[in-house]
Design a protein around this nucleic acid. Structure first.
Lengths: 146, 146
DNA sequence: TATTGTTATACTCTATAACTATA
DNA sequence: TATAGTTATAGAGTATAACAATA
């Protein structure tokens, strides 16, 4: 005899997707409040941080890392470029590519704002209960993400 | 002497918000694929399930539970009503309120589709590694959500 | 006065197809 | 032919303000 028990929730309010969304609402809200003075959206800040750590990264590689389609990525780079924070350069080796860099101003901006971001991150860690819980959460989320 | 160590990540790609979003992309993608035959968005399905478990719930209460602003909730209820899956009733006790119910057809629809949703949920649980990991994840997400 | 639902509006995010220039 | 970037566009999701009906 084979008894199988179904542990899936019967209420959407207990489902994984529901809580993912509710948690993200909180995190996004805190991020937005933190960055009000800088008029910066999450994706913009993420890209600036990415360029700080990976100067010269290919535009399409950056888009893939951040999980944004390359078609939607163009306007994102445009915005940072128009604000003088990032720039595109076409390498001689492959003229199809756009290599992305922070400008001097962009580097200063990252220095100025990354502390704010870490404060934001700290508040989220505090909500979770500590570093171990953060690591646990990220580990589990990593399993979900492709 | 007071040594304090900063455990916050220095890369956005290691941050909580980043992984929340990446995980949600996967979950949403799986949900969408699962529900293609029904032309149903996550919020619509969530509301149907909510009405199945809480018949007669006040429109604004349903909106709050699902984390959707009441202004944006109107079109959601409209859509389900126009498909004949849900209906609004004004209770005599308070004529400002809309009480929400599944129609007979809506009830059948939930019966038909909730199995699909549980399969979706099962796939996400499998990705996480099991029920315990799901419970862990939901516990952590609950702490983040307000 | 306060609450509930509603309308209008604007902005962001996401997805798809098609074009261009280069390889 | 294939790849990288781009444009255009449409659909969802979200946030805010203002209004009518009712309490």
């Amino acid at each position: 005899m084979n008894i199988s028990v179904d542990f899936t929730a019967t209420n959407v309010e207990e489902g994984i997707g529901y809580w993912l969304r509710r948690a993200q609402q909180t995190v996004l809200h805190d991020f937005s409040e933190t960055f009000v003075p800088y008029d910066l959206r999450p994706a913009e800040f993420s890209l600036l941080m990415l360029l700080a750590n990976h100067p010269g990264i290919k535009q399409s590689d950056a888009a893939e890392i951040l999980g944004i389609q390359r078609a939607n990525f163009v306007a994102l780079v445009d915005a940072l470029q128009q604000r003088g924070l990032a720039e595109r350069r076409k390498p001689e080796s492959d003229r199809r590519v756009q290599s992305l860099f922070l400008t001097r101003q962009g580097t200063d901006f990252v220095v100025e704002t990354s502390g704010k971001w870490r404060q934001h991150e700290s508040r989220m860690i505090a909500r979770l209960g500590g570093i171990e819980e953060r690591d646990q959460l990220v580990e589990l989320l990593t399993r979900l993400a492709c």
